[in-house]
């Protein structure tokens, strides 16, 4: 009986409500995290698609430029990129090279985080799309040209619709990686999951329970996103095109 009395003692109840309040505070950071990753993935898509198309079909000098882009953004750690962009990478360009901006360009932490993650993701996504473009049978481009399509329109109407479908599984992989990279954005002071968790953990010293909770949140967000993309993959799958695997009988 004492045990139950203790279980519902005011101290424990308060601790539970305290935790649930803190947990709520952390969980509300999911909104920031989701917005951050959604915008970064979108930026990566918008930049990555033309990057990959140029890498495959572009003229040599442009290919070199896209190669340079991919080389740079895959080579620099996200953390370094965030500091570079947040602490005036653009200021540097502005003050030493051009005089593009009248005022100093100040990025909010959130914008800087979106920009860093998006620019880096564009490099990775361009490689996903490149592989997908190359896996579309090249005769289809030839057939489209023979019908009178310009190369650009053939790529837009024939190649990319197929390449994008092929990219979804790899894209969902990129999502799950970028989602966890987004945790680094706490260093800039974005109020996403990780920043809130660190705040709670360091004020209450209850590190384990808060970090476990944050881990759980990331786990759920990953699962949800991957699930969503799997549904999309199924929805846009080309009928009859085999996705089945040959299984040898033992």
């Amino acid at each position: 009986m004492d045990f139950f009395k203790n279980l519902f003692s005011p101290e424990i109840l308060r601790a539970i409500t305290d935790f649930s309040q803190s947990a709520l505070f952390i969980a509300q950071g999911s909104g920031y995290t989701v917005a951050l990753i959604a915008l970064a993935m979108l930026l990566g898509l918008i930049l990555g698609l033309p990057l990959s198309t140029i890498t495959v079909y572009g003229p040599g000098w442009l290919k070199k430029l896209t190669g340079l882009y991919v080389w740079f953004f895959r080579g620099v750690p996200i953390l370094v990129l965030m500091f570079l962009i947040y602490f005036g990478f653009f200021d540097l360009i502005e003050s030493f090279y051009f005089k593009l901006f009248e005022e100093r360009l100040v990025l909010t932490p959130f914008k800087a985080a979106v920009l860093s993650l998006g620019l880096a993701s564009a490099a990775y996504q361009s490689q996903i799309f490149k592989g997908a473009i190359l896996s579309v049978q090249s005769g289809q481009l030839k057939a489209a040209l023979a019908l009178g399509f310009s190369k650009k329109r053939a790529i837009i109407h024939v190649i990319l619709p197929q390449a994008l479908r092929i990219s979804i599984p790899a894209w969902s992989n990129e999502y799950s990686i970028l989602l966890k990279d987004s945790a680094i954005a706490y260093v800039l002071g974005t109020m996403e999951i990780m920043a809130r968790t660190r705040f709670m953990a360091s004020t209450t010293f209850a590190h384990i329970r808060f970090y476990l909770f944050a881990g759980l949140l990331y786990f759920v967000l990953t699962w949800l996103g991957v699930k969503l993309l799997a549904v999309l993959d199924k929805k846009v799958r080309i009928p009859g095109l085999a996705h089945d695997v040959f299984r040898a009988e033992d």
Binding site: V136, Q137, K142, A143, A146, L147, R153, Q162
Partner: peptide
């Protein structure tokens, strides 16, 4: 000039109808 290929080169993501219609629409 119409062209026919040995390995057909149909557009895999389009139905037979859309394979025939796409150039009419987009070209």
């Amino acid at each position: 000039i119409g062209m026919i290929f040995q390995d057909f080169n149909l557009f895999d993501h389009l139905s037979a109808r859309d394979n025939v219609a796409i150039a009419l629409r987009k070209v």
